[in-house]
Structure formats: structure tokens, C-alpha cells
């Protein structure tokens, strides 16, 4: 009975969540005439790769892909490291000002890139990171949501474990590497997935930093296809965006492997 309810819920949710996704993939295979046809067609009546051909035409797609991969991977590595460390420090630290710093992290959740865009540009310019892929990485590695996720996760790690390690003579670094890191596998996986998605889809920083085609990212290229006025080539845009989702999907499936029981049975005494 409970199982049946669960599956009915899942199927209904799946329809709701996948409808726009399906529709966008289906539209990417339509001709422009069909995109604008009324009544709308649920299946492409004569599927065409026209949108995909347009999407890759005149684009140095491999260059964009290389740039985006470099930025996403490097930024994700740094983000995961600093978030796990800081999350641990802010959850389990004993330094003065810990409370205030925790509050500060929450406050940064509310700041959107669009708001700080202009001053951010000035700083990136001062650091001479304009037209430099590091200009897409360094300003982005502190991610409020990632930080907050790490803090909340670390809070769930029982203090007793850290205490007992201390009693056994481990120093702080050993505790971090030998106890905290192994317990943080699901966190690392989640942060990696999130961070990769954010950097992959980032649009504000590339817009600010990049003035050269050789440094374009996929999202910047996508924004450019959207072109000028109405009458947007939707099949092309959706073809391009369908293509850009594939790598994130692969990362997601890869990193899922790291999700596993965080706290191993028998590792704890309560």
C-alpha cells in the first residue's frame, strides 16, 4: 500500500517535472515553421536536425567546451575544498566570532550576482583578471549555498567522535583528514554536483570578464544565439541548451557513486 502511494506520487511528479523538459527536447527537433505552428504539436511531425546544425554552425564549439570544462572543474575543486574546510571550522570551531561569521554566511545567501555585478567588475579589473579564465574561477569559488550546505552537514557530525579522536591523541589536521573527510563523502559529492552545475551555467561572470571569442563559455555562446529581437530561433536555442546539459548530467551520474551511508554502522557509540 505505502509502496503503491510512493510510486503513484513519483509518477505524477515525474510527469510534472519532465513535461517542460520533454517539450524543450522535442522542440529542439522541430523546424522553425513547426515551432510556431498552432495548435502546438506534442511530437515533432517531421523531426529535423536543423536546430542542431544551426547551433553548431559558425561556433568554435570545442573551444567553448574546453573553456567551460576548465572553469567548471577547477572552480569545483577549489569550492569543494574551501567549503568542506570552512564548513567544518564554522560548525565545530571554538574561535571568537564564530556565531557572527555563521550569520554572515547566511546573509551572503541573499546576494545575487546581478546586484554586485558592477563593483565585482571593478575588482576583477584591478586584479587584472579581465580576459582571463581565472577571472571566471576565483570570484566564483566562494558559493554561499555551498558554504551553508557544508556548515549544516558538519553540524550533524557528533562531537563525541571528534572528542574521542582527540583523547586518542590525534591532532586537528589528523581529525580533519581521518575522521571528518571520510564522513563527508555525501557532502563532497553533493557540493561537487552543485558547484559543477553552477559554474557550468554561470553567465554573469563570463559576461563581465570575457571580451574574446577564444575565451567564450558555452553559456555565453547560448546567450548570444538568443540574438536581438522577437522571432527568436527557438529550435536552435533549445538544441544548444540540450547539448549543454549532457555534460552536467554525466557529472551528476558519476558523482552519485559517492553517495553512500555517511556514518558507517558500528562506528559510533551513543
Amino acid at each position: 500500500m505505502a509502496k503503491a502511494i510512493k510510486w503513484i506520487f513519483l509518477v505524477l511528479a515525474l510527469v510534472f517535472y519532465m513535461l517542460p523538459v520533454y517539450y524543450s527536447v522535442a522542440t529542439s527537433f522541430k523546424s522553425l515553421q513547426e515551432v510556431y505552428r498552432y495548435p502546438p504539436t506534442i511530437f515533432p511531425t517531421s523531426p529535423t536536425l536543423q536546430g542542431y546544425q544551426e547551433a553548431i554552425r559558425n561556433q568554435e564549439l570545442l573551444t567553448y567546451l574546453k573553456n567551460t570544462l576548465f572553469v567548471s572543474i577547477v572552480a569545483t575543486l577549489i569550492t569543494v575544498i574551501i567549503c568542506v574546510m570552512a564548513g567544518y571550522g564554522l560548525a565545530k570551531g571554538t574561535f571568537p566570532g564564530k556565531y557572527a561569521l555563521n550569520r554572515l554566511v547566511v546573509m551572503t545567501l541573499f546576494i545575487s550576482a546581478q546586484v554586485i555585478m558592477v563593483p565585482l567588475f571593478v575588482i576583477i579589473k584591478r586584479l587584472e583578471l579581465i580576459n582571463n579564465l581565472w577571472g571566471l574561477i576565483l570570484p566564483a569559488v566562494y558559493t554561499p549555498t555551498g558554504m551553508f550546505t557544508a556548515i549544516q552537514y558538519m553540524r550533524d557530525i557528533p562531537d563525541e567522535m571528534l572528542e574521542s579522536a582527540k583523547i586518542d591523541g590525534a591532532n586537528e589536521w589528523q581529525i580533519f583528514w581521518k575522521i571528518v573527510m571520510p564522513l563527508s563523502q555525501p557532502l563532497v559529492a553533493a557540493l561537487a554536483i552543485f558547484s559543477f552545475t553552477w559554474r557550468w551555467n554561470d553567465f554573469v561572470l563570463p559576461l563581465l570578464v570575457v571580451n574574446r571569442r577564444s575565451l567564450y563559455t558555452l553559456q555565453l555562446a547560448l546567450a548570444v544565439i538568443q540574438g536581438e529581437y522577437g522571432g527568436v530561433p527557438w529550435n536552435t536555442i533549445l538544441a544548444f541548451s540540450t547539448l549543454t546539459i549532457i555534460p552536467t548530467l554525466i557529472i551528476f551520474l558519476l558523482f552519485q557513486r559517492f553517495f553512500m551511508r555517511g556514518i558507517m554502522a558500528g562506528g559510533l557509540k551513543y
Binding site: A86, G89, I116
Partner: peptide, 28 residues
């Protein structure tokens, strides 16, 4: 004491936070 209080773990994030979030906010 930086290590013992675990403040040291926060430092890298704090550098990025200050440079790319707090300074822009101040200028806003």
C-alpha cells in the same frame, strides 16, 4: 590557537568571501 580553535579551516573561504563578496557589498 588558530589551529586548535579550528579558525584556520575558515581562512581560505574567508579570503574569497572578503575579496569577492564583502568588498562589493561595501561599495554598494
Amino acid at each position: 590557537s588558530l589551529v586548535k580553535s579550528r579558525f584556520i579551516f575558515v581562512v581560505p573561504a574567508l579570503v574569497f568571501l572578503s575579496l569577492f563578496v564583502l568588498i562589493p557589498i561595501a561599495s554598494i
